[in-house]
Each structure stands twice: as structure tokens, then as C-alpha cells.
Design a protein around this nucleic acid. Structure first.
Lengths: 205, 205
DNA sequence: TTATATGGCTAAAACATATTAGCCGTGGAG
DNA sequence: CTCCACGGCTAATATGTTTTAGCCATATAA
């Protein structure tokens, strides 16, 4: 039925493997199960399909970051929580981040597409950095800043701490994109990392 | 003169920005300063140019990793060195790694091309992981294993330590690829990271 | 000097790919 | 029932791109 959506999905699936230019409208159509010219009943050009994917994913992504950043911005309640943050809490936080980043097919494919297209323009480079590096980094910087202020984390530069903490997440996410079959293994590594980080930098008051 | 080499260089320059499929032989030729058909006096197809870039860079890269890994494999001499490793030594090691990875134009462009093409085949995915993640990671894992054995590093899982240590390097390398103008800033961050790592995990015997 | 390999060029062929034109069956609204 | 919008199809067009064919100038070797 909803061909218009299926086109977006299949196009993204293809773009995220080979990149925009390597994929023909023919292939998109055939993945959907229709003929190329029929695509033009739904989108006015190939570029238009690309743009639609962009908007669709932007919407989904924004919805997600809204939910996650509320944890940090809602300072009142979190100040209380910080004191009792455990290693398990951190592990849990990372798990839920990964859960979303890896198991939402749309998000996953879009990230791969962005990886492929990131050097095409300054705009795309910036979007990539903002979305996949800075956003997660700022989140942890703020989190650690508060934890330090609350005396539950060693008093080191929160920006550096955050980088030490989240760079492995980013790198392993990349590894998962390349080798999804090893996800289980990577997740264990990541958990060990989080626990080592906690053990090293956390302090009880 | 050496048109054959210049074709490789200009093709790589273009591929590393827009990806293989987005670049036409026309553009490659014009970058070199000749007409498209003349390319075929040197390479038998566009794909052939791509492959040649691959071989050329593989050669350069292997040459480099040979030099760097000798530091670790030469166990005799290094055991002595490990004891007196300072934060400055680590900073220096990272600097020279970055120096090579960022300031060798060929290496830099090739890495960007790999970033773009990494999802095309299992082969490319594996090459990417091996070259840009595992190799550097194994290097540090071995380094830290020895340092732990020598008692100059906290006795934690060297694999996790290595990841904590080198993931920020990889992430910041990616940032440099996207935003070369911020290199200076990123290098400072990286230095802080190395020093914090040293301060945290190094111990004098 | 002559022959030949090299590496450039133009013109054209071969191929691919995005897009348009226009036809047709179906299903819901009036 | 009729009409029409929807969304599929085939055929064709427009455009672009890779590659081949074949010509020509130059430099080098015999």
C-alpha cells in the first residue's frame, strides 16, 4: 500500500550501502517492486527522494534527542539523581543510546548514508559532526560537569572526561555499522569500558 | 610529465570528496589538464584508475606501519624504554601518528575515500576496520600490555585501556577530516586527553 | 634519416540513466 | 452508474558518460 513510504525506505537502504550516485532509480523501483517511471508519481525527481529521506529522518531524530536531553536539562530532579548514579546506571544509559542508534533501522541506515555523503559539502560535514559527535559529546560534558559539581566524579576537565568516555561509543558504533554480526561482542567491550571509567573516575561522597 | 601519477593524484582528490560514482572521467581528465580519452592511454578503464590508487596507497601505508610497529615488536629494547615513558613521550607518539595521518596528502585523501566507500563490500568494510581501527588499537593494546607487565601502568584490561586511549584519537581524526581548519584546536584537546590518561593510569615503580 | 613508441587530440559509438508522455485498470465519491 | 483521481505500466526522449577508433606531433633509437 503505502508505496510513498516504501520508496523512502528502500531508497535509504540502497543509498546507505552505495551512496546516492551509485544507486539508480531503476534499482530503487525494483526494490519497491514497481517500475522506475512509477516513482515519479510519488516524487518529482531522484533528488526529491533524497530530500524526503532527509526530512523524514530529521523528524525522527529530533523527536529522539528531545527525549534524551530532557534528562540533563531538567536540572532540579537530576541533581538528586547524580548522587546515586551507579555503574549500572551508566551502562544502562549507554545501552539505551545504542539500542536506539543501532536497532532503529531508519536511524541506522541514515547514519551510514551520512557517513558516505559527509564530505560532499560543508553543510553535510557540519550536520554529521553536530549530530553524531558533538551532540553526544555535549550531553556527556554536561552530565559530567554536574557530577563533578556534586562531588561524585573526580575533578578533571569534563570535556576531556566526556571524550574519553564517549569516543569509544562512537568508534564501536562505527564498527557495528561495518560488522553488525559482531555487535554482541562490541557491546561487551563497551560495558567493560563504562565500568572501568566509572571505577576510575567515580568517587563516593 | 609524469601524467600517469598525476591522474592517480587528481582522481584520488576527487574520489575522496565525492566518491567514485559521483566523479566522471571527464572531471579527472580536466583536473589533470588533458581530455578524457587520453586517460585511456594510461589506464584501461575508470575502475582501473581506482584499483591503481588502491595499490599505490597500500604500498605507502604498509611502508609506514612497518616503521611504526617495529617500536613494539622490538621487545628487547622497548622493555627498557617502557620504564621511563613519560607523558611527553605519549604526546609525542600521538603527534607523530597524527602528523603522518593528517599531513600526508595521499594518506589523508585515501582515508576519506575509504570512509566514503566502506559500505560497498565486506572486503572494504574489513579493510577499513583493520587499517583505521584495529591496527592502531592492537598497537596500543600491546604497548599497554607491556607497560602493565613492567608495572608502569595500572593493572587494568589493556584492551579496554587501549580503547579508552585511542578512540579519542580516531574520533578527532574524523573531525579533522571534516573540519581541517580546526585541527589546531583538536590537537590541543588530544594532548589534554593523553595527559589525563597518563596522569590517571601511569604509576611510578 | 627513418621508424616507432608515446601520449595528446577529435569524433563517434556504446551504453546507461533520469525523466516525460501517455495509456489503462481499479476503487471510491457523487 | 458514472466519473475521476490514483498509481501502475510501456515506450520513448533527453542527457550524460564511458570507452573506442583513428589521427597527429614529438622524441627517441636504430
Amino acid at each position: 500500500m503505502d508505496t510513498k513510504q516504501r520508496i523512502l525506505l528502500e531508497a535509504l537502504r540502497l543509498f546507505s550501502k552505495r551512496g546516492y550516485d551509485a544507486v539508480g532509480v531503476e534499482q530503487i523501483a525494483s526494490a519497491v517492486g514497481i517500475k522506475a517511471p512509477s516513482l515519479y508519481k510519488h516524487y518529482k525527481s531522484k533528488q526529491d527522494i533524497f530530500d524526503a529521506i532527509f526530512e523524514e529522518t530529521a523528524r525522527r531524530y529530533d523527536a529522539f534527542t528531545d527525549t534524551i536531553s530532557v534528562h540533563v536539562t531538567n536540572s532540579e530532579q537530576d541533581v538528586i539523581e547524580f548522587e546515586k548514579i551507579t555503574a549500572d546506571d551508566l551502562v544502562q544509559k549507554v545501552r539505551s543510546l545504542i539500542e536506539y542508534s543501532l536497532h532503529d533501522e531508519y536511524v541506522c541506515m541514515f547514519r551510514r548514508m551520512m557517513t558516505i555523503e559527509q564530505f560532499r559539502s560543508r553543510e553535510l560535514s557540519e550536520l554529521y559532526s553536530r549530530r553524531y559527535v558533538n551532540q553526544i559529546h555535549d550531553y556527556h560534558s554536561r552530565l559530567f560537569t554536574k557530577m563533578i559539581a556534586d562531588g561524585v566524579l573526580e575533578d578533571e576537565d569534563p570535556v576531556i572526561l566526556a571524550m574519553m568516555y564517549d569516543a569509544p561509543i562512537l568508534v564501536l558504533l562505527g564498527e557495528c555499522d561495518r560488522h553488525p554480526e559482531k555487535e554482541e561482542e562490541y557491546m561487551k567491550t563497551l560495558e567493560s569500558h563504562v565500568r572501568l571509567f566509572y571505577k576510575t573516575f567515580h568517587r563516593d561522597r
